[in-house]
């Protein structure tokens, strides 16, 4: 009797200990006995990034965010990234901290610096790039997220309404209209630039404030761009499940962009150049869609993308009209 009890008590205690430890490790995203690469990131501030968030590389989740601590000198924040398996970041790799979806969770994405020329990634001094065998990368946190999340709500609502309507099949017509929409968007960008050029001659004196605002625009655009890159990757990899989420992100980003357009004009040209390339990648997607590449079949079921792109275009059009009509309204009062 006593022996049986000892056995049972021992078994229950051990089972509970194993379950707790293994469960906790698993939920924290750590494997047991798996090799893990640690990479550190130095960044000025971490935004909403928290321990346990996903680390992505080319859209694929490759690890988790570990502890986050302020450097002893107080001049930066050090983020530990725990990556699965052996991972060797490219020499010019940097880390972009951004929202993963619109529901508040963030991610750290390992990217190549040259893709984001306008972002002020933390500059890690050459003598600190490898510490104790751990690679230290520079990071950059996308600003302006409160604005992004503010639109998120609205977008989510629109999305709900839209998805309800989308029982219709994705016809050739819709595919064509997507392509058309993207063409229109490029046209729109061109127009936008013209407007900006006209306006900029009037307000050349306020360079400094505007420069700051422009940086915000640049980064927002980068966010848009990374969203599109993600969409691109999704199409290529067949992960269509999350298309909807990404579509939401894109819309949000674009709203951010349009919002920002109202706040600054100087140096918009360079920013718009990158917007151009954003459009180019949209074009590429459209081409792909038309060519039937990727998971077009699945995409056909979810025709949201085309219609929403149109919806977006409409909004941008009306915005532009408005800019044209009342340019002053869109320049921050504080500037003048």
């Amino acid at each position: 009797m006593t022996r049986r009890r000892e056995l049972l008590v021992g078994f229950v205690v051990l089972a509970s200990a194993v379950v707790s430890v293994v469960g906790t490790l698993w939920l924290q995203g750590r494997g047991i006995g798996r090799t893990e690469t640690e990479v550190h990131v130095l960044v000025n501030d971490v935004g909403q990034l928290a321990q346990g968030n996903a680390v992505k590389f080319r859209g694929v989740s490759i690890g988790r965010v570990g502890p986050i601590e302020v450097e002893p000198a107080g001049d930066a924040v050090r983020i530990h990234l725990h990556l699965m398996g052996e991972f060797l970041p490219a020499p010019d790799a940097v880390v972009l901290l951004a929202p993963e979806s619109l529901f508040g969770d963030w991610q750290a994405e390992i990217v190549i610096r040259s893709r984001f020329p306008n972002m002020a990634f933390y500059d890690v001094p050459p003598n600190r790039r490898i510490q104790n065998g751990v690679r230290v990368l520079g990071g950059f946190t996308l600003p302006d997220l409160s604005r992004l999340t503010a639109v998120a709500d609205e977008v989510a609502q629109n999305l709900a309404v839209l998805t309800d309507r989308f029982d219709k099949a994705f016809s050739d017509e819709t595919a064509a209209s997507l392509a058309q929409a993207i063409d229109n968007m490029e046209e729109l960008t061109a127009t936008l630039r013209t407007v900006v050029e006209e306006e900029s001659s009037q307000i050349s004196g306020t360079a400094e404030q505007i420069r700051i605002a422009t940086e915000e625009i640049a980064s927002t655009l980068a966010a848009a761009r990374s969203s599109i890159d993600r969409l691109d990757a999704v199409l290529a990899s067949g992960r269509v499940d999350s298309i909807l989420d990404n579509a939401v992100a894109i819309t949000a980003d674009f709203r951010g962009v349009s919002g920002d357009v109202t706040s600054a004009i100087d140096r918009l040209e360079s920013t718009l150049t990158s917007a151009d390339s954003t459009m180019a990648s949209l074009s590429r997607i459209a081409a792909r869609v038309e060519a039937g590449e990727g998971s077009i079949g699945k995409l056909l079921v979810d025709s949201t993308l085309g219609l929403r792109a149109e919806d977006l275009l409409e909004q941008m059009s009306s915005l532009l009209d408005d800019i044209r009509a009342n340019p002053r309204k869109y320049v921050r009062l504080s500037i003048f």
């Binding site: 229950v12 205690v13 089972a15 509970s16 200990a17 379950v19 707790s20 469960g23």
Partner: peptide, 13 residues
């Protein structure tokens, strides 16, 4: 003190 955490950990699981 010893067994409540054990039972509760299993219950959560």
């Amino acid at each position: 003190l010893l067994m409540f955490p054990v039972v509760i950990a299993l219950a959560i699981t």
